[in-house]
């Protein structure tokens, strides 16, 4: 029997594939979808270059434009102060990246093809978030390079540095599930593209570029509880960069690491089930 015939037979004779099979499929299908992202990047190297150059441009732009005007609270180099904010901004971009990609699949019928195939049901969202993690890591690496070039560096040694990056990865993964859900909810790539700028306030309304102390009360409250702020604050602390608040600050900024972990857990608890339900929903 040829292999094709065997696979056909296996698919159609196993009434319910075993738990082990499902898990393995979820994993291998997820890997295939990660490979898909790599294949797309290979086809469109221009997109890759843009994605990679963009963080570097931001470092230079923000670092020298804002850096010339903004004083760092408590003193210190603005570019040292800025880099944790930019890391957080890039981390947050996972929402938009995954949202637009998911919406494109949903509107072009690719998602329907996936759903009409005998695939592991969880593979598609897991593949998409996994693939984003890969591109996210690449972007972070470029960002680190650009940061080092403009004079930023971690000061507290290997372990805290590793912890800071780990927090970024954890939060990025959690945020990418928000993207999956929103993408599945809008189902239309043009709407999703148009929504991208709406996410800008999430990064700006934070301590990433300026301290929150100067903001009006209600705005400051939002900024203090923003996960982007917590991620920025935890990076500043773990890298030993300037801008670590001293004295009276809101709870999330006094405990930024715990806040990032809590935010990540909360986002995953809410958006993983929501996304999976939206993916499986067969009402349409």
């Amino acid at each position: 029997m040829t292999e094709l015939a065997e696979v056909v037979k296996r698919h159609s004779t196993e009434v319910t594939p075993s738990m082990g099979h499902r898990l393995r499929w979820t994993f291998t299908d997820g890997l295939t979808l990660i490979g898909r992202e790599l294949g797309r990047l290979r086809q469109e190297p221009g997109e890759l270059i843009t994605a990679l150059v963009f963080p570097a441009i931001m470092v230079v732009l923000f670092g020298y434009v804002f850096g010339s005007a903004i004083g760092v609270p408590g003193g210190g180099d603005y570019r040292e102060y800025l880099m944790p904010g930019l890391f957080a901004m890039v981390t947050f971009s996972a929402v938009m990246a995954v949202m637009t990609r998911t919406a494109a699949d949903a509107s072009r019928g690719v998602m329907d093809r996936f759903r009409s195939m005998p695939m592991a049901r969880l593979a598609v969202p897991f593949g998409q978030t996994g693939a984003d993690l890969l591109t996210g890591l690449l972007m972070l690496a470029i960002m680190v390079g650009a940061g080092l070039l403009v004079g930023w560096q971690p000061h507290r040694g290997l372990i805290p540095t590793a912890q800071a990056f780990l927090l970024m990865i954890v939060l990025r993964y959690a945020l990418s599930w928000v993207g999956v859900y929103v993408g599945l909810a809008v189902k239309n790539d043009q709407v999703a593209d148009a929504m991208v700028p709406l996410f800008l306030p999430f990064t700006m309304l934070s301590n990433a570029f300026v301290p929150t102390e100067g903001m009006p009360g209600w705005l400051r409250f939002l900024a203090d509880w923003n996960p982007v702020s917590a991620l920025t604050a935890s990076s500043r602390e773990l890298f030993g960069n300037p801008g670590v608040p001293s004295g009276e600050v809101a709870w999330p900024l006094a405990h930024p690491v715990a806040t990032v972990l809590l935010w990540s857990a909360a986002l995953l608890v809410v958006f993983v089930p929501l996304s999976i339900r939206a993916y499986r929903r067969r009402g349409r």
């Binding site: 696979v7 296996r10 291998t28 299908d29 295939t32 898909r36 797309r40 469109e44 019928g109 195939m117």
Partner: peptide, 23 residues
């Protein structure tokens, strides 16, 4: 509507979907 990944090649699409059919 052609439900394939526009960014991939024709061969890339068939290979990807083949893998997703667990070949």
């Amino acid at each position: 509507y052609a439900a394939v990944d526009e960014k991939l090649t024709g061969r890339g699409n068939l290979r990807m979907f083949g893998r997703l059919y667990h070949l």
